[in-house]
């Protein structure tokens, strides 16, 4: 009798386990459906092409203009700036930590990077306003330091833990024999790093760049606080910009629910979703292929 009851209970638990297993798939699908459903009529009504290529973002003027281009350019500028800064620094730090640093220093540096990962982005945004922006303002003699450059520097900093840890993994998984072979041929440690270790870890570096871009493009609060928040087409990094993410965060609070403006923000969300989806897929393919090849 109790056996029967236990069997029954077990079946229920196993059903719950299976459901939880596929819940991740359901959520991804659900997020896509929601973003799509909320933005579909907007894209139809405003003409998708006009939206994606429109150079003016004036959502509350009359008539409103919903050009995404300045926002996309804002994200692009900030992201590119951040990656250009983050990748060399991240690669250098990963190399230093895994190849050069003595054991005691290694632990300290790793802890430092972990600490950085644990700081909430809102805190970094605040520090950006009070420390970084004035520095930029004075250095470039600008009216305000709240610029795309400030955002790029801050985001490069925030992407560092992701980039460093992935590259570090890639470096440590390079077979020791490669390295020893090169050293045995009389190469210096640095020559070995440059000719053997970096090429062997290359897929990991690519994955780190991809995931770094994903991390940077999705960052919201810090960017909202320190990029100056002007939805205009940027031409240099020393201008204020407005990213896709910051636009949602800044405007969703005041928007009239059910207006085109409201749905346009879901449209921005959909674009962000698609961009990060593709980036993560590529990064996973790169990492996965590496795993299969051994």
């Amino acid at each position: 009798m109790t056996r029967m009851k236990n069997r029954f209970l077990e079946k229920i638990i196993e059903a719950a386990i299976f459901l939880s297993g596929i819940v991740a798939v359901l959520i991804v699908v659900l997020i896509f459906i929601f973003l799509f459903k909320e933005s579909f009529s907007f894209f139809v009504k405003e003409n998708m092409l006009a939206v994606l290529l429109g150079r003016n973002w004036y959502p509350i003027s009359d008539p409103p203009q919903f050009g995404f281009l300045p926002l996309m350019m804002g994200s692009l500028f900030v992201t590119m700036g951040a990656i250009v800064i983050a990748v060399p620094f991240g690669l250098a730090a990963a190399l230093y930590i895994s190849e050069v640093a003595p054991a005691w220093l290694k632990d300290i540096l790793k802890t430092g990077i972990e600490l950085l990962a644990a700081i909430p982005s809102i805190v970094l945004g605040f520090i950006g306003i009070v420390v970084l922006a004035p520095l930029i303002k004075n250095f470039f003699h600008l009216g305000s330091g709240l610029t795309a450059l400030a955002g790029s520097i801050m985001l490069a900093f925030m992407a560092m833990p992701t980039i460093v840890s992935i590259i570090e993994d890639a470096i440590t998984s390079v077979p020791r024999s490669y390295k020893q072979g090169a050293l045995a041929l009389g190469a210096t440690h640095w020559q070995t790093i440059r000719r053997v270790i970096i090429p062997a870890a290359f897929p990991g570096i690519i994955a780190a760049v991809m995931l770094g871009i994903g991390r940077v493009i999705g960052e919201t609060m810090a960017v909202l606080m320190i990029t100056g928040n002007a939805a205009i087409m940027p031409t240099t990094l020393l201008q204020p910009v407005r990213t896709l993410t910051a636009t949602i965060a800044a405007e969703m609070g005041e928007v009239i629910r059910g207006s085109s403006h409201y749905y346009s923000l879901f449209g921005i969300g959909l674009i962000l979703f698609i961009i990060t989806f593709v980036i993560n897929l590529i990064a996973d393919l790169v990492l996965h292929r590496r795993r299969i090849n051994g």
Partner: peptide
Amino acid sequence: NLAGIPSIVYGL
């Protein structure tokens, strides 16, 4: 992919 979705999109 869930891990990569921007936090603001979760908010939406």
